[in-house]
């Protein structure tokens, strides 16, 4: 474990806490893409299949359970909670995310980390996480005004993978000394997708203006 990876995991956890807080305190999920949340549930379920077969550390097990539990809880709130589900902007959340699932699955079959079921699914989860934010970014572009918590959620979610890029550089030089093409290219793509959001987020923060993405 290195400081970049720990910071990355804590940032990731914080992003989820911020989203849960927003939904629970405001009883609203306006501006949040249910499709992105569904993709993240899929990412965690297909990535953590080794939860009960391979033990790394208490931290690893605990965090996997927290990520699965919180992402399912957010999905449940947005899909089934009687008050929250009324605030879901269904018409704005129009990204065809099933294409992302199919595309990433085909990619994982063609370029898997290893030709075993768990490794194909692990690769699928890496590819899927790289594009999982797309429905959310599209929804933000359609939203007139983006509330602070939603902006912070997306920023933290993007920042965590950027910290993971630093973690991978660190691990390359200190222990692995080999290129891990699949997670590293996926992680670069994932972080690059946030580039323009980061730009507008930092601008709005510096100018103390409301966050607005160009359509």
């Amino acid at each position: 474990m290195n400081v970049f990876r720990l910071a990355g995991d804590m940032t990731h956890l914080l992003s989820i806490v911020v989203l849960l807080l927003k939904i629970r305190t405001t009883k609203s999920c306006a501006g949040i893409s249910l499709k992105t949340q569904e993709l993240y549930v899929l990412v965690f379920l297909t990535r953590y299949l080794d939860l009960f077969t391979r033990y790394f550390s208490v931290y690893n097990v605990l965090m996997k359970l927290i990520f699965i539990g919180t992402s399912v809880a957010i999905f449940w709130y947005m899909r089934y909670h009687k008050v929250v589900k009324q605030t879901y902007s269904k018409d704005l959340d129009s990204f065809r995310h099933y294409h992302l699932i199919l595309g990433c699955f085909l990619m994982a079959l063609l370029i898997p980390f290893d030709f075993s079921v768990t490794e194909v699914l692990w690769t699928f989860s890496i590819y899927l996480e790289a594009v999982a934010i797309l429905p959310q970014l599209v929804l933000l572009q359609k939203s007139r005004n983006i509330d602070n918590l939603t902006g912070n959620y997306v920023f933290l979610l993007g920042a965590y993978r950027a910290l993971y890029l630093l973690n991978w550089i660190y691990r390359f030089f200190t222990e692995i000394h080999k290129i891990r093409w699949i997670p590293w290219i996926s992680g670069l793509v994932q972080t690059a997708l946030y580039a323009d959001f980061f730009y507008y987020y930092i601008q709005s923060w510096r100018k103390h203006e409301e966050l607005k993405l160009p359509a």
Binding site: R5, D9, N60, Y164, P183
Partner: peptide, 10 residues
């Protein structure tokens, strides 16, 4: 899987 295959990451 050999060590350092990043499966120890979240």
């Amino acid at each position: 899987l050999p060590e350092g295959e990043l499966h120890d990451e979240l």
